[in-house]
Computed example of a mutant assay.
Amino acid sequence: MTEWTKTLGELVVENPARSRVLEKFELDYCCGGKATLRDACTRKELCIETVLSEIHACDQSKNQSELDPTKMTLTELANHIEQTHHAYLHTELPRLSNLLDKVVTAHGNHVPYLTELQALFTDFRVDLEHHMAKEEMMLFPWIRRNEAAPSTEAHTSSLAEPIAAMEAEHEAAGDALEQFRALTSGYITPPQACGTFRALLDGLATLEWDMHQHVHLENHLLFPRALAGQGVKS
């Protein structure tokens, strides 16, 4: 299988550093990760040879010290997601809410999109915090228990419904992130924006990047392997 016929999700599973290349070209490898590189480039009207060239350059410079999620057990992967991505969100979501409150108060009258952005972010935060709670209290412990006691067909089939629900919620979060980017014209800082406004837009851009990493790990590694009853991927 050549790179252009692989899905975006597969490309990032093979080398997580490739996510930086796909981000650069605004190719969605998390919720949209089932699309092939060729199809995704066609939809975006991108030159596939240019994208492939950057992917190959990324592969050649791959940092071997980077964590390789494909070598983690399911328990290690769930722990990594919680300790890295969930921990980030538990801190960052309240911070961004606070920044939004300040920016709307100061600039809401002359930056029309801010009120809509605040409403969208408030819903996004509530939904995502509920989503993480379900993973931390139910789904991830279930996955860890099933790995500790080798899964039967009944065990893995019982995971299918909650995992499908989590994936649907990932889609909704991805839609919200797209709306954040569209409203802010790609997180471009308006002229004469204050430091708080700049911090807000930088924080939203970083949130988008982290969410893409986060959802990719769950949708394309943790969940499929849990459903297959796998430990370390061979």
Results as ranks from 00 to 15, higher is better:
170 H>R: 03
126 V>D: 07
228 A>G: 06
130 H>M: 10
126 V>L: 06
99 L>A: 02
121 F>K: 00
214 H>C: 03
56 H>P: 02
232 V>R: 11
70 T>Y: 13
117 L>G: 00
183 L>P: 01
77 L>P: 11
127 D>R: 04
78 A>M: 07
82 E>Q: 14
100 L>M: 03
164 A>M: 05
20 R>N: 14
97 S>L: 09
11 L>H: 09
15 N>S: 10
57 A>P: 08
225 R>A: 09
4 W>F: 15
158 S>R: 02
196 T>G: 04
2 T>A: 12
133 A>P: 03
46 L>S: 12
214 H>Q: 02
16 P>N: 07
13 V>A: 08
203 G>L: 06
139 L>R: 04
46 L>K: 08
189 T>Q: 04
52 L>C: 10
46 L>E: 12
154 A>Y: 09
147 E>R: 08
178 E>V: 06
206 T>G: 09
94 P>G: 08
59 D>N: 14
149 A>P: 06
41 C>E: 13
178 E>G: 13
103 V>S: 00
143 I>G: 13
68 D>G: 07
116 E>Q: 07
206 T>L: 10
228 A>T: 08
70 T>A: 15
205 A>Y: 00
199 A>K: 06
75 T>C: 12
102 K>A: 11
70 T>D: 11
79 N>T: 15
88 Y>N: 01
205 A>M: 00
65 S>R: 09
228 A>E: 14
73 T>S: 14
202 D>P: 00
155 H>Y: 11
98 N>V: 12
226 A>V: 08
229 G>T: 12
187 Y>G: 00
82 E>W: 13
59 D>P: 07
218 E>M: 04
198 R>N: 15
36 T>M: 02
223 F>T: 06
132 M>E: 02
172 A>Q: 13
58 C>M: 12
202 D>T: 04
190 P>S: 02
214 H>W: 04
17 A>E: 15
104 V>P: 01
223 F>R: 03
44 K>V: 11
30 C>R: 04
53 S>Q: 14
21 V>Y: 04
90 H>I: 13
30 C>N: 05
99 L>G: 02
178 E>C: 07
211 M>Q: 06
155 H>R: 13
126 V>W: 05
49 E>D: 15
178 E>R: 09
202 D>H: 01
175 D>E: 15
84 T>G: 13
138 M>N: 13
203 G>K: 05
177 L>H: 02
72 M>A: 13
132 M>T: 04
203 G>Q: 07
127 D>E: 11
33 G>A: 05
122 T>N: 05
177 L>R: 01
225 R>P: 08
183 L>G: 01
27 L>N: 05
29 Y>Q: 03
234 S>H: 13
14 E>Q: 12
51 V>S: 07
152 T>F: 07
123 D>R: 11
80 H>S: 10
54 E>W: 08
207 L>S: 01
119 A>L: 10
32 G>T: 03
106 A>F: 07
54 E>N: 06
121 F>R: 01
5 T>G: 05
211 M>H: 06
184 T>R: 00
53 S>T: 15
162 P>K: 03
152 T>Y: 07
157 S>T: 15
48 I>F: 10
12 V>M: 02
228 A>S: 10
